[in-house]
């Protein structure tokens, strides 16, 4: 049977974060109309933050969506929801295709383990089998350019070296839907060029890209659609040529 085509469908997606152990009653009024952050409210006795409100979205293969909006407008929350980590309070999220979320490069990195072990661990969390990781190990190892350091604990690495390792491990996946929080740039100038190429390849292979960023030039470069989030409320999905319009408001 042919698998259904790659797609993302969100219908009336509403997501609230309950905040436990904080009584935001007094904060509520002060923050209700703040420009930054979601809206605070109380539902059934628990203080909560409405991070996303009735977001509807439909993406198909070939769509490269850029997400823009202030800090706390819900970009990362939407990405996490699309990765399957959050259950919506209302509405539906449905994703067809293998998802890769490059939200936090540090995910699953254990500083006391060696480079090789970390690559294995990261691969396993991303859904690769032990055999698949073994097959890719040489390629990943070569890409990091860390050579003999891969057999040493990651805590002995410099920040740049750690970045290289995490990047190489995280991007060694096959995916149909790629979720990214900011365009990833790690390592020195030389590595950044290589990383850029690798990321572009990943984007090309993926059917759908959703990229949250604050940088307009990046959007114009990689995306063909754009959506703006404001306090959890989404604008409609627009063509990238109208990005300046969205950024202006």
């Amino acid at each position: 049977m042919k698998p259904p085509p790659v797609s993302i469908t969100c219908t009336d997606l509403t997501l609230r974060f309950p905040v436990y152990g904080v009584d935001a009653k007094s904060l509520k009024k002060a923050l209700a109309r703040a420009a930054v952050g979601g809206r605070l409210g109380r539902h059934s006795g628990v203080t909560d933050v409405t991070a996303l409100q009735s977001v509807s979205l439909k993406l198909e293969a070939g769509d490269r969506l850029g997400l823009i909006g202030h800090n706390g407008s819900g970009k990362t929350t939407l990405l996490r929801a699309l990765s399957g980590a959050y259950e919506p309070d209302e509405g539906v999220i449905e994703v067809q295709g293998r998802i890769a979320a490059l939200l936090d490069l540090g995910l699953g990195i254990d500083p006391s383990a060696t480079g090789y072990e970390n690559i294995r661990l990261r691969g396993r969390i991303a859904g690769l089998t032990a055999k698949e990781i073994d097959e890719r190990m040489d390629e990943i190892a070569a890409f990091t350019g860390l050579g003999p350091f891969l057999a040493m604990p990651v805590k002995t690495y410099s920040a740049g070296m750690q970045g290289r390792l995490a990047f190489a491990a995280a991007t060694a996946v096959d995916c149909d839907v790629l979720l990214m929080d900011e365009w990833i740039a790690v390592g020195d100038a030389e590595f950044q060029k290589l990383a850029h190429k690798r990321l572009l390849k990943l984007v090309e292979r993926a059917g759908i890209l959703v990229l949250a960023t604050h940088e307009a030039p990046l959007l114009k470069l990689y995306c063909n659609k754009v959506m703006r989030l404001d306090g959890g409320i989404a604008s409609e999905v627009m063509d990238i040529r109208r990005v300046d319009e969205l950024l202006a408001t």
Binding site: P4, G91, E94, Q96, G97
Partner: peptide, 11 residues
């Protein structure tokens, strides 16, 4: 499965 993810509100 790895290729289909569905998350919905309270039902």
């Amino acid at each position: 499965t790895a290729t289909h993810m569905l998350r919905t509100g309270q039902r």
